[in-house]
Computed example of a mutant assay.
Amino acid sequence: MNNHLNLRLHHFGITADNLEETIHWYREKLGFTYDYTYKIEALKMKAAFMSLGDFRLEIFEVQNSQPMPAYRNDVAANIGVEGLNHVALAVADIEAAHRTLKDRGIEFVAEITEIPNSHGERYTFFKDNNGVLIELFQANPQNYKGANQ
C-alpha cells in the first residue's frame, strides 16, 4: 500500500525550556549526535536537529513557551489523552538498556512490562530532562508482518 509514497519516519519534535541543556541531555544520556541549530525570528524560536542512527529529533526552544501539563508526565494519564503522546526507542535487550540508563541518572516511571498477546515484546518508560515520556521497547521481529511490503 505504501509502494508509491515510500513513506518512512523521519523525526519527532519536542519543545524544551532550554535548548542547550536538552541537546546536552540527549547527547550524554541517550547517545544522540548534534546535527545543527537554526533560528526563526518571526516565531521567536531557535531549534536543533539531533540524530540517533536514521532517527532524528528536532528540539524547539520558543520564547514564552508554556510548561507541559503535569498529566503528560504520567504514563496512565497521558495515554488517556487523544493525540500523539510518546516516542519509543527500540532496544535488543531491555534489561541491559534499563541498567545502563539508570547508571546515567535516567528516571524511570514504569517497570519493565510484557505486552499481552505480543509473544514477548516488552516496554518501560522514562522521562527526559523536560519531562517528555520516552518508551524503551524490546520488539519481537516475528510480530512485524508488513515490515517489507
Rank of each mutant, 00 (worst) to 15 (best):
D74S: 05
I115L: 08
A42C: 01
P116V: 02
H4E: 14
F108V: 00
D128T: 06
I112K: 02
A48P: 14
P116T: 00
Y34T: 12
A97K: 09
L89R: 12
V132Y: 13
N78S: 10
I94L: 06
H24D: 08
T124P: 09
D35I: 08
E135P: 01
R122M: 10
A76T: 14
L19R: 03
N129S: 11
G83S: 07
R104V: 01
P67G: 03
L19I: 10
G146L: 15
E21R: 13
I134K: 03
F108R: 11
A139V: 11
I134F: 03
Y36I: 14
H10G: 15
H11W: 09
A92E: 07
K145E: 12
E111H: 00
L57R: 10
Y36E: 14
R27A: 04
R56A: 10
A48V: 05
I112E: 02
G13A: 12
A110Y: 01
A96F: 03
H4L: 15
N2F: 12
T15V: 13
G120W: 00
P116Y: 04
I94T: 03
N18F: 08
I23Q: 01
G120V: 01
K102S: 09
L84R: 09
A96T: 12
P69R: 14
K44R: 15
T124M: 05
R72D: 00
H24R: 08
N148Q: 07
P67H: 01
A42L: 11
F60N: 13
N3M: 05
S65M: 00
Y34I: 12
D74Y: 06
G105E: 13
D35Q: 15
L136Y: 04
G31T: 03
T100C: 00
S51Y: 06
G13N: 11
E58P: 09
F108D: 12
G53P: 11
V87K: 07
F12P: 08
H24T: 09
R99N: 07
E28K: 02
R122Y: 06
F49H: 00
Y71L: 10
N78C: 05
A70K: 12
M68K: 04
I106C: 02
N2A: 04
L57K: 08
T124K: 02
V75H: 14
G146D: 11
E121V: 07
E82S: 11
K29E: 00
Q142E: 15
I40P: 06
K127D: 01
T22S: 10
N140S: 15
N78P: 01
D74W: 02
A97P: 05
K39E: 11
I106M: 03
A47Q: 02
G131C: 03
D103K: 12
G120C: 02
A110W: 01
